[in-house]
Amino acid sequence: MTTTLDPRRDPLTPQFADWLAELGVQPDDSAEPTALVPAGDLLRVAALLKADGFMLLDSVGLDYSQYTEKKPARFCVLHNVFHPHDHRRLFLRVYVPDSVDGSGGELPTLYPVWKSANYLEREVYDLMGVVFSGHPDLRKVLTPDDLEGHPLRKDFPVGETPTLFRDGRFLDPATFRAGMNGQSAGLSGYKGGQRRGEMNEPLPPVMPEGGPK
């Protein structure tokens, strides 16, 4: 094996810095080869990369609102582009300009450049709430139509949902877990070596009809 990898794949080499300078973007301080692209510049850089033969593999939506380090904006979209022939990879980090009402900002769509941006941007829109202006078909893609909000935002709860039983009872996750430490009977009815056997014993504490308040 004597083949050498393209030096521009490694963000630490001078060739990588040259390449980014050629594209007219700043390198980002990251373990992966990342370029910091201003939102207004995105289409120009994308067109350059496309002309070079790159393909768009993925778009990652990030919500930095609870991140330890301070970031320039709350939302950020990373476009993962890859060259199918010399195997260079580049992440285009685009910070989404914060919108006034905090509803997630707007970015230009990459659909005119790469057709694969179609679904990828729809996914980011659906799960993160970043709007891509000019996208031909910006609809929800994964979540149900009646789901409000964008699940991957940090202020969306994971949503441990109570389980509804046929007789109208709910199994609340907190109550369920309470039963596991042996302190209370919980839902399993198991408490410190005794087992609830008789049928006429009161049912374990569950949520009232209608679910959690």
Binding site: E160, T161, P162, T163, L164, P173
Partner: peptide, 9 residues
């Protein structure tokens, strides 16, 4: 999968 997306039962 105790989360927002899956029917729990």
């Amino acid at each position: 999968f105790n989360n927002y997306a899956v029917v729990q039962n």
